[in-house]
Design a protein around this nucleic acid. Structure first.
Length: 700
DNA sequence: CATACATGAATTTTT
DNA sequence: TTCATGTATG
């Protein structure tokens, strides 16, 4: 899934610290996994070790924070222990584990088994309603405050006591009403998915015994991101009555990468661990398999400014590599231009600077680059400059419109119209919505197409097909084929936004897509939102057919009127580009937060200025704790880079209409770049690298 | 008075 | 980008 395999350069065997972590099975274990130290390897190998020790797969729980992380971990585990065992491993998020516990035993708390889960829009609605207010911003603040309280394990009564000011008093009163509504609706919010299972384990001895027995070992990834309630839940799960079965868990995390304090994560959970578990085994992983010496040194210097919870210092076997570059820019626009220039120059000189470790990366790909920044809005200018330079990019987090299931469904149809030999598109279209063509029929069809080297669509109309399949199956297939042909004909001759829209709506009507969405989702709301995406998609196509005028980075583009089929062709191109492998050949733009856990050969840290990083808000003043978290954010940013790191600051900054002086972030001085013992002349360096590369090539 | 459009400001994000 | 607020127009 990731652009780069995180452990591409890891040795085949585990290092001593990793081994120790993997083999410590009996008691509680805290693995302090520095950036790039092979944390996922430790977790998956430990899972394998537990299986080897005789634990059943379903008794091993590995808990992550995001579904994506879960999926990735299951994939990694599968590669190590095989698909069979991997299938039964309990690899899930805190929240989905909570859902499971509540679905099975929620009734013990008076929650019916089919309770509903409110998403954050639902919650906002309930809060607006309960608080009698139409101000979205206020309701959001309530939502925020209430969620933080719940993350600390407070209910509305406790919150009323904890409320610091008038605003919070109000929030606590709204929270009381909110709790009553949720109970009445038999609904829970995301925070309840942690809080209620904890309540269950505390209140109900039977359920406690059941769940404590369910898991023989619990592994928690990104432990530094846990909030108070999540830790209590973990504790409850592994606090078995039987002394010999207590504390069977492995927490894996890095206090230096704790960057989610603002949403309730607490480092207290790390501090508490040694006291709560006196037999805790603490294992630091300090060898880094990712970055060059210069980059690690800068990272270590920066993080040295924070008080130490557990001493830890990253080191690596790689050479110093290139020094960290410092780029002072004349405003945001200039910064973006410099970043683009940085990317282009490395790509052009790829061979020379490709890999300071003498790696074999002869070609530098767009996906080797990332531009990281503090706040989302900073992405805008970079997008503009990248577009101008014709460099493909993606903005992280921004889940592409085309990635949504409903849009992919419809794109499959459009691709099929454009190219009837597109077998994957055929398979998706023919089964979406279901039209009585199942895997048996498709299997036969596939067999046939394989034998005669024709596409599935061609196979459809083969004369010998009725001999292989039942009359009913052949009938459905022919009907589908006829419909595709008819649709293609119409699409070829329809243009103009009005007509295009009519055609598209007629098509959706014909295939019963709206009904399909409502049938497929158990939540009506979700189905409705999917349908509204579909309508956006239809409008988007229709606009394109009408020959609209678009603004793109200042340039006005007037497109011709297009037929529906022409637009479908454009879409097909976009899709096939996006689908070529999982790995998109594009530059990544990401916030520092969203970059955690990822890595790139070449990274630009942008906008490293006082006020932005560390971030200063008018509302809150800078406490030492907040500054420390900002420093960890800088640390996370630095440690994303493998070989080249450019840190850019603004000498001037736009603020409103006027430009103000930009002050470089204090973190820049903290990197102590001037202390870097890399005094090599750049030309000498280039020579040396060339020589090393030549030696490598000669050797292989 | 209501709607439309422009302007400006902006933490960070998952379930 | 989005979201909210302000101005101009009907």
């Amino acid at each position: 899934m990731r652009p780069q395999s995180p452990m591409a350069d890891a040795p085949a065997t585990l290092n001593p610290a990793q081994l120790e972590a993997v083999h410590h099975l009996a008691g509680p274990c805290l693995v302090l996994a520095g950036a790039g130290s092979g944390k996922t390897r430790v977790i998956t190998h430990k899972i394998a070790r537990l299986l080897q020790a005789g634990l059943a797969p379903k008794r091993i729980a590995a808990i992550t924070f995001t579904n994506k992380a879960s999926q990735e971990m299951r994939e990694r585990a599968k590669g190590l222990v095989g698909p069979r065992a991997a299938k039964d491993l309990v690899i899930s998020t805190f929240h989905s584990l909570g859902v499971r516990m509540l679905r099975e035993d929620g009734e013990r708390l008076g929650l019916k088994a089919q309770f509903s889960i409110l998403d954050s829009d639902d919650v906002l609605g309930v809060l607006r309603d309960a608080g009698g207010c139409s101000d979205n911003a206020l309701a959001r603040r309530w939502q925020w405050t209430i969620s933080l309280w719940k993350n600390q394990g407070l209910d509305s009564d406790a919150a009323a006591l904890a409320a610091k000011d008038a605003d919070e008093q109000v929030a606590a009163r709204v929270m009381k009403l909110y709790e009553e509504r949720l109970a009445a609706y038999q609904a829970v919010d995301f925070d309840d998915l942690i809080g209620l299972p904890l309540k269950l384990l505390r209140k109900d001895a039977e359920a406690r015994a059941k769940w404590q027995d369910a898991f023989g070992h619990v592994l928690v990834d990104e432990y530094q991101d846990t909030n108070a309630v999540q830790y209590e839940l973990l504790k409850a799960l592994v606090s078995h009555e039987d002394e010999r079965k207590r504390g069977r868990f492995t927490a894996v995390g890095d206090d230096d990468q704790s960057i989610y304090g603002w949403r309730g994560a607490t480092i207290e959970n790390l501090k508490k661990l040694p006291t709560d578990w006196p037999d805790l085994k603490v294992i630091p992983l300090e060898q880094n398999y990712r970055s060059t010496g210069s980059i690690l040194r800068a990272a270590n210097h920066v993080i040295a400014g924070n008080p130490k919870l557990f001493p830890k210092k990253l080191w690596s076997e790689f050479g110093d590599g290139e020094p960290v570059r410092l780029v002072a820019c004349d405003g945001e626009e200039h910064e973006a231009e410099r970043a683009v220039a940085f990317i282009q120059s490395i790509r052009a000189n790829g061979v020379a600077v490709a890999d300071a470790r003498g790696g074999s990366a002869a070609v530098v790909k767009w996906s080797d680059f990332a531009i990281l920044y503090r706040a989302n809005h900073q992405a805008r200018i970079f997008e503009q400059k990248l577009r101008a330079a014709q460099i493909p990019y993606k903005v992280s987090g921004g889940q592409s419109f085309f990635d949504r299931a409903e849009i992919k469904d419809l794109c499959a149809w459009l691709r099929l119209l454009v190219n009837q030999d597109d077998d994957p598109a055929f398979l998706r279209a023919v089964t979406t919505p279901k039209r009585g063509i199942g895997h048996t029929t498709l299997g036969k069809l596939g067999e046939f197409s394989g034998k005669w080297k024709v596409s599935l669509f061609e196979a459809l109309f083969a004369e010998s097909l009725p001999g292989m399949l039942g009359a009913k199956a052949v009938g459905s297939l022919h009907e589908f084929g006829r419909y595709i042909n008819e649709l293609e004909h119409k699409a070829r001759h329809t243009s103009g936004s009005e007509d295009a829209k009519a055609l598209l709506l007629e098509w959706l009507q014909d295939i019963g897509y709206e009904q399909h969405l409502y049938d497929g989702e158990d939540s009506e709301k979700l189905a409705a939102s999917r349908w509204s995406n579909v309508m956006d998609f239809v409008d988007w196509i229709a606009r394109r057919c009408g020959g609209e005028i678009t603004q793109d980075g200042g340039a006005t583009l007037e497109s011709e009127r297009q037929t529906v089929l022409q637009v479908a062709q454009t879409i097909s191109v976009i899709i096939s580009l996006a689908e070529r492998g999982d790995e998109q050949e594009v530059v990544t733009l990401s916030t520092l937060h969203a970059s955690k856990g990822l890595e790139w050969p070449h990274v630009v840290l942008a906008g490293v200025n006082e006020g932005l990083l560390p971030f200063k808000s008018d509302a809150e003043d800078m406490t030492p704790e907040r500054l420390e978290e900002e420093r960890r954010l800088m640390y996370v940013g630095i440690t994303r880079a493998r070989t080249t790191l450019a840190v850019s600051t603004l000498k001037r900054r736009k603020k409103g209409r006027d430009t103000v002086a930009g002050i470089p972030s204090r973190f820049i001085a903290e990197m102590k770049l001037d202390e870097a013992p890399n005094k090599e002349d750049p030309r000498e360096r280039l020579k040396r690298l060339r020589a090393e590369l030549a030696a490598k090539v000669a050797a292989s």
